[in-house]
């Protein structure tokens, strides 16, 4: 499928921390990118109801107030709704592996519920496009890894991202980054989703 015809859903999850086994989902936000444009009329945002959250550091990172944690949807329901919103589109996230694992964990108790969607990691994509057409996209060394943190990419690609560190703010920043990367990919001769997903 041509890049310009596909629907990508760029998303971000916000969690109580970065440890998959201990931490819980706080919110999910996603926005559609179709025809290389970010569509605000195709956006999703859900807060997750968490009653037993201990990680005070999350509140610091995400600037969340405790009252936010008391409202929202049950975790599995929030993820199920997000997956319904995403449909069969390609999921895109920064360090996507982590976010996808958070989604999988949330719906794990439900038999047969899976995340089937193809996924794209904007960190890997950026590195691949910057390093050369056929780079594997594997992170090489700590310095390089840091260069592909969302903060650094946002600065390097001159993206306005006023509401960082919320799921919605990061999803929007990632979408704007992804949009630029898609243009870059086209210039590298990548015109189809297949080419984009190919390793």
């Amino acid at each position: 499928m041509p890049l310009r015809e596909a629907r990508f859903v760029v998303f971000d999850t916000e969690t109580t921390g970065l440890d998959l086994t201990k931490n819980r989902l706080l919110s999910i936000a996603g926005v559609g990118v179709t025809g290389l444009e970010v569509h605000l009329d195709d956006a999703f945002e859900a807060l997750v109801l968490q009653t037993d959250v201990g990680g005070a550091d999350a509140a610091v990172i995400h600037g969340m107030v405790s009252s936010d944690l008391g409202s929202g949807l049950p975790e599995d329901e929030a993820v199920a709704r997000f997956l319904a919103f995403a449909g069969d589109s390609i999921l895109v996230a920064h360090h996507a592996a982590f976010d996808v694992r958070m989604l999988r964990k949330a719906i794990a108790p439900h038999r047969g519920a899976r995340v089937w969607n193809p996924t794209i990691d904007t960190a890997q994509l950026a590195q691949r496009l910057e390093d050369g057409a056929m780079s594997s996209g594997r992170a090489e060394g700590a310095g390089s890894r840091e260069a592909y943190q969302l903060d650094n990419l946002v600065a390097r690609y001159d993206i306005e991202a006023p509401e960082r560190h919320t799921a919605a703010g990061d999803a929007l920043a990632t979408a704007l980054l992804f949009q630029k990367l898609l243009k870059k990919a086209e210039r590298r001769g990548i015109h189809t989703v297949g080419q984009l997903l190919a390793r």
Partner: peptide, 14 residues
């Protein structure tokens, strides 16, 4: 649920 904070960001920019 609506995507309010994303919309608000765009609204304030506009």
């Amino acid at each position: 649920m609506s995507s309010d904070s994303m919309i608000l960001t765009v609204a304030s920019r506009l």
